[in-house]
Design a protein around this nucleic acid. Structure first.
Length: 233
DNA sequence: GACCAGGCACATC
DNA sequence: GATGTGCATGGT
């Protein structure tokens, strides 16, 4: 096996593209559609993306429900409440002081030009430029930015997380220390540029990771074991 | 009680 | 550029 300049291990491009689709199909057949973030508003999804940083979704739901109960799931309202109040409400999601600050930082960005508090203005910005703007906000790193782009705004950006890296390095398809950008390009260059596919693929990988690809892998019952790619360690 | 979760920023070498 | 650490609640 050779290693190319992008850091992933050798497979002919066509072979790789088929393999990535095959993996997705196996996951889909096994878990069914994940339906991540269906029918929610953009702003709620953005909050979720921030709140879920290194945190289980269950805890994020508690935080979001707190905000929902107080009818605060709107940027105008969240902007007005003091940070200490916001901290109390998002507490169940952990890192609550940081996260309250990050939400406030995002709101500052959101209400400043060129967005000026209007979601239509946000939607107008081209993906590449918007990604850059999001990354300039303190507390929004690559995964959070890409989650916002994909799940809140429907942009064709593949979201990469710790599970993605772990799963694909164990499959032997990429190096285990591949960087975020490289890994994202690995998917974007080898998958059809389709938002619905990116959306569900990432969600499937998270599901697989949670169940079978923790630090100690459970490769025997892993749905990918049928293609003999899952290393047993 | 240890380990983990849909990361990120910052310090230090 | 790589590696280490703080942040914090709640589940297994």
């Amino acid at each position: 096996m050779w290693k190319d300049s992008c850091g992933h291990f050798g497979k002919q491009s066509n072979e790789l593209k088929e393999l990535l689709l095959e993996i997705y199909q196996l996951l889909y057949a096994h878990f069914g559609p994940r339906n991540w973030w269906p029918g929610q508003g953009e702003f709620e999804i953005i909050l979720g993306a921030i709140l879920t940083q290194n945190t289980s979704w269950k805890n994020v739901e508690r935080a979001i429900n707190n905000l929902k109960e107080k009818n605060l799931l709107q940027p105008e309202k969240l902007r007005k409440i003091p940070q200490e109040k916001l901290e109390e409400l998002v507490k169940p999601s952990g890192y609550y002081r940081q996260k309250a600050r990050r939400i406030k930082d995002f709101l500052e960005f959101y209400f400043a030009p060129p967005i000026s508090g209007k979601i239509q203005n946000l939607k107008k910005i081209p993906t590449k430029k918007l990604r850059k703007m999001l990354l300039e906000i303190k507390g929004i790193g690559p995964e959070t930015a890409d989650s916002i782009l994909l799940y809140a705004l429907g942009r064709p950006v593949f979201v990469v997380d710790a599970y993605t890296r772990r799963i694909f390095s164990r499959l032997g398809l990429v190096s285990e220390d591949i960087g975020y950008e490289e890994l994202r390009k690995f998917f974007e260059q080898n998958l059809p540029r389709k938002v619905s596919l990116y959306n569900d693929y990432h969600a499937q990988l998270v599901e697989l990771g949670k169940r079978y690809c923790k630090r100690v892998p459970d490769c025997k019952s892993c749905p990918l074991s049928s293609i003999k790619l899952c290393f047993e360690k």
